[in-house]
Design a protein around this nucleic acid. Structure first.
Length: 272
DNA sequence: GCCACTGTTAGCAT
DNA sequence: CATGCTAACAGTGG
């Protein structure tokens, strides 16, 4: 899915487009796109004012005010979710599950999601969407402290949203390659120096991708419907069988189970 | 057509 | 609690 840089790309244009606007309505065409964690109805949002638009990890959040009350809309794009700016009256494209309409804008937002792994959250409070420390806000010290004592696989842990929020397969893979760490290495076996190098690599890749409008492997589109360009900078993600850019050894993909995510890595540069 | 693959994560089993 | 496996889904490529 859209990981942190893709959601950041989206969040900054959503912010520009609608902070301070007045909502007409949120219309949900398929109610199973609403997360069961939701504790508010779409009807509450009619005529509310758009407050802050922000991002935590991979979640895009809107706050709304009406009658001195506050509500939240959370958007998680899953693997194939898109939030698109559409002209008023423009017909829905396939897999459009919700629309966000404004009284004082000449466009609307459509939530489009073929696979429907994504969810919309209508909530009184954002707390349930704020788990983990955002990968761009965590300090090097906290990063080391959170990982240093853990067992299991470093890659799985980096991607665990309840610990560090925002990193998925692409950025975990690239950060591990850059810091020459094997994806299955146990964090408690890594030195502080290695963890710090991983921290720096993670930040560097996240920030570089934001500058390029995110990584589009297949489905990610910005609010305006454009693809990102960061995919050109990937070194190992999805490169199974291609030569490592460092040492020319062929990139391999580890697969812990038949349905598990591939862990791409260079067997020579990233030793256990 | 079938099978394998895809950027996630909640929920359950161990 | 920590960790690991599975399902929810639709599209694409071999």
């Amino acid at each position: 899915m859209p990981e942190l840089p893709e959601v950041e790309t989206l969040a900054s244009s959503v912010k520009r487009a609608c902070e301070g606007a007045k909502l007409d309505s949120i219309e949900v065409f398929r109610k199973d796109i609403l997360s069961p964690l939701s504790d508010e109805n779409p009807a509450w949002y009619a005529k509310a004012k758009v407050g802050k638009v922000y991002r935590h990890g991979k979640t895009l959040l809107f706050s709304f005010q009406k009658d001195k009350q506050e509500r939240v809309l959370g958007v998680r794009l899953g693997m194939s979710g898109q939030l698109l700016k559409r002209c008023l009256g423009e017909p829905k494209q396939v897999h459009t599950h919700a629309a966000i309409r404004f009284l004082d804008r000449d466009f609307e937002f459509h939530y489009v999601d073929a696979r429907r792994f994504g969810k919309l959250f209508l909530l009184k409070k954002p707390d349930s969407l704020m788990k983990g420390i955002d990968a761009l806000k965590i300090s090097p010290k906290d990063f080391v402290a959170l990982l240093a004592k853990r067992t299991g696989r470093i890659k799985a842990l980096l991607m665990h949203q309840g610990i560090i929020a925002g990193v998925g397969n692409i950025y975990a893979t690239e950060a591990l390659f850059a810091s020459r760490i094997h994806p299955y290495q146990q964090p408690n076996e890594l030195s502080e120096k290695q963890l710090l190098s991983l921290y720096k690599a993670m930040r560097k890749f996240l920030l570089a991708s934001i500058r390029r409008g995110g990584t589009t492997i297949r489905d990610f589109l910005s609010l305006d419907g454009n693809i990102g360009t960061n995919q050109k900078s990937l070194k190992v993600y999805g490169k199974k069988g291609l030569p490592c850019p460092q040492c020319k050894t062929l990139i391999q993909a580890l697969r812990p189970g038949p349905k598990a995510q591939a862990a791409y890595y260079c067997p020579k540069c990233q030793r256990m």
